[in-house]
Amino acid sequence: MMLKDKVAIVTGSGGGIGREIAVAMAEAGAKVVINDIGASLGGEGFSTSPAEQTKAIIEQKGGQAVINTDSVSEWENAKKIVQTAIDAFGRVDIVVNNAGILRDQIFHRMTPEEWLSVINVHLNGSFFMSRAAAEHFRKQESGSFVHITSTSGLIGNFGQANYSAAKLGIVALSKSIALDMKRYNVRSNCLAPFAWSRMTSSIPAETPEQKARVERIMRMGPEKNAPLAVFLASDAAKEVTGQIFAPRMHELFLFSQNRPIRSVHSESGWTPEKIAEVALPAFRANFVPMERSGDVFSWDPV
């Protein structure tokens, strides 16, 4: 019961990874706010059914949960979601920023609407939820944020400029929260999931290579991500903050973060020509390759 007496908000927990995290946190002793608007990945339709299904699973296992169907993409809604936890359970200890949508499109065809809708849910939503909970965390001098990022942002992918930008932005948001709120014993970490879910079902599977990649991903159920989320939210991780993790089947990864990897110095300063002549050859061997997530994580999960 690593989360006994704690209250967790899990956004986008009507299905997939969010549902598995919500259920696992309830099994670990937390009281859970299930937040989900019940819409498709394309934003069509609104239903309480997904959240009700998650609630039923939690209650069947002896846990406690309440439902909120507000969208995280609005500041006023984020405050309502946090207030749901306060009204139902008297406090809030954990926020899992999992809610997400997809609007995949090749960059030169991406519309402003496709860009903004994804940024609003993923990045703005993570800020709004974190900011709404921050006042409670600060006053009680405790709290844990678990933000869901993606290797699409950490490494890169085709056709996901909006999603990748949002997910990498979440990493910077998490680090800033970790730095700013450390004095209040508030922790903030990122989790980059590997799983077959609604969010990955749009991955192309046309070429033999693409089909092989999708087959690998389909072997990884969303439940594989829940144990790490529970750990990061628990007091067992009280010294862990500002980090980026990924669970992949039975593997766990700790990601590096941007640091200088090569430098050159010129006593007389630099001109564009001198950069081309001296700096470029010195840097070239250390350039980051043009890889996608599937290129880096190319082996079969075990």
Rank of each mutant, 00 (worst) to 15 (best):
50 P>W: 07
33 V>S: 00
41 L>C: 07
24 A>E: 00
39 A>D: 09
27 E>I: 01
33 V>T: 01
47 S>H: 05
29 G>N: 13
27 E>Y: 04
31 K>R: 15
43 G>L: 04
40 S>I: 07
38 G>D: 05
44 E>N: 14
23 V>S: 10
38 G>S: 05
18 G>M: 12
30 A>C: 14
22 A>W: 00
29 G>E: 15
23 V>C: 07
49 S>N: 10
34 I>R: 04
25 M>W: 01
28 A>T: 09
44 E>T: 14
35 N>S: 11
27 E>Q: 15
33 V>I: 03
30 A>I: 04
37 I>F: 06
32 V>L: 02
39 A>H: 12
33 V>F: 00
27 E>V: 01
19 R>W: 08
50 P>S: 01
47 S>Q: 04
50 P>Y: 03
40 S>K: 15
48 T>A: 13
34 I>H: 05
34 I>M: 08
41 L>F: 15
27 E>P: 05
43 G>Y: 03
24 A>N: 02
21 I>D: 04
32 V>G: 05
30 A>F: 08
29 G>V: 13
20 E>F: 07
46 F>K: 13
23 V>Q: 11
46 F>D: 05
35 N>Y: 03
25 M>F: 03
30 A>M: 12
44 E>H: 14
42 G>V: 11
42 G>F: 04
17 I>H: 10
48 T>E: 13
44 E>R: 13
30 A>S: 15
19 R>D: 12
25 M>V: 02
18 G>E: 09
22 A>G: 03
33 V>H: 00
30 A>G: 14
46 F>P: 06
47 S>G: 08
